[in-house]
Write a protein that binds this DNA or RNA. Structure first.
Lengths: 228, 228
DNA sequence: TATTACCATGACCATCGGTCATATTATGAC
DNA sequence: GTCATAATATGACCGATGGTCATGGTAATA
């Protein structure tokens, strides 16, 4: 029967796809482990292949380059931060609390995955060089990464538009500006905190959580509508 | 005469040193030009040698590695930002205005030298990988770079200690924390502004100067002593 | 002029990202 | 069960590049 034949073909194809996806995961996990413990530049494709228990050539059947491996890790990180942000914001309906929640989501994400904390910045610095090298060819994986970045931005947009309607945010300032500043400050501070974690405790006797609370309060007060 | 001989020897030695320093400058300028236009990874030592009009081997008589070239550029950047900060702060004696001036110094520096704007972050990401590679050997140039970082920090410390004495900054918060947050926020925001300069104007119709003013006002208000 | 100290040079080396012809295996047709 | 085909794993191989070093040359001193 033609339909039976077709069915078997489909099943095989599906299994193959699943296996492909699994191997992609194995490779990424191997790469992640080595990149984070030795640094990107100090890790060779050979080492990643050994860690994944496959040969170097196989790596290239699943990813096009070493840089792609790194961006793939960035995609994982973005998925996580988006997940965190959704979880942290959906429990509030007030615009201001939601806005604060985005900041805390980023911070909690960074605490849970400290190795991922600087990856966005790291990739932002790497991407221009990559596109310089391979003129105007934006790889599929790069597109996926940039697309996730937009998704993350849209979450902010929705929250800010909500807050705007409810007059929760001071009206004399462009809401786009507020979002931009909020995102940028949070990222800058959290990245710094993660990189200087031990130093900050020893040298200045500061507790990261306090620093975050202080900063977010600062922002909250600054964003509140002016009353006078 | 023994003293005459000595004198001549010293003069020659001095000239040699001056020439050495000049060639170091030529090499750094060549490296800078290529790193900033093509990216660090896409630039070869051969290219830098050609740009400097010397051979590759000569480069290694003046710097130990490609990474050292990059850190040397970082040293130039640090010297500049320290210079800017001193110039911007010394015209004020009020603690708060001085504190704001540090932020504006960083911003002006970034506007004048946009290519340098992300170099501190870039090096911060690179340094751990370098020290991983060459276990526990911190090169002289790396020490110089880190030392300049401390110098920059000390400028802040002095200003904050001044403000503390004059009760210009709210007393309920650790001054170390205030410095830390201020530095981190400024760096994060300015770096973001420099990287997304065109995008921010087109997409959000934002003027970078406004974003900076808004943020710094936010900080100023947040740092003022609580009155009630 | 001879000796010495310094420096520029580019051939050379080792490493590594990436490629590709080949070997291996799984699949479906008959 | 057998064979043709498609998909995949492999590692020898290539080119590029960071870094080294023996050599030759040049300027300063004796």
């Amino acid at each position: 029967m033609n339909s039976l034949k077709q069915k078997k073909l489909n099943i095989t194809k599906l299994r193959r796809e699943k296996e492909r996806e699994q191997l992609r995961q194995i490779i990424i996990e191997a790469a992640e482990k080595l990149f984070f413990s030795q640094g990107f530049e100090n890790t060779t494709m050979e080492q990643i292949a050994n860690e994944a228990e496959y040969s170097k050539g196989t790596l290239y059947n699943y990813y096009h380059s070493k840089n792609e491996l790194y961006i793939a890790i960035g995609i994982k990180a973005y998925s996580l931060i988006i997940e965190y942000t959704k979880k942290f914001t959906e429990i509030h309906d007030s615009g201001m609390k939601q806005l604060m929640a985005t900041g805390y989501a980023y911070y909690e994400f960074s605490k849970d995955y400290p190795k991922y904390a600087t990856i966005f910045h790291d990739i932002a610095l790497k991407l221009p060089d990559i596109s310089f090298k391979s003129k105007e060819k934006v790889s599929e994986i790069e597109k996926e990464y940039l697309c996730l970045g937009n998704t993350y931005g849209e979450i902010f947009m929705e929250i800010i538009n909500n807050a705007k309607k409810k007059n929760i945010i001071r009206a004399d300032k462009d809401p786009f500006m507020i979002v931009y500043v909020l995102k940028s400050i949070t990222k800058g501070l959290v990245e710094d905190l993660m990189q200087t974690n031990k130093e900050i405790k020893k040298k200045f006797n500061l507790i990261p959580d306090d620093v975050i609370d202080f900063t977010f309060e600062l922002i909250r007060d600054g964003l509140a509508p002016r009353k006078e």
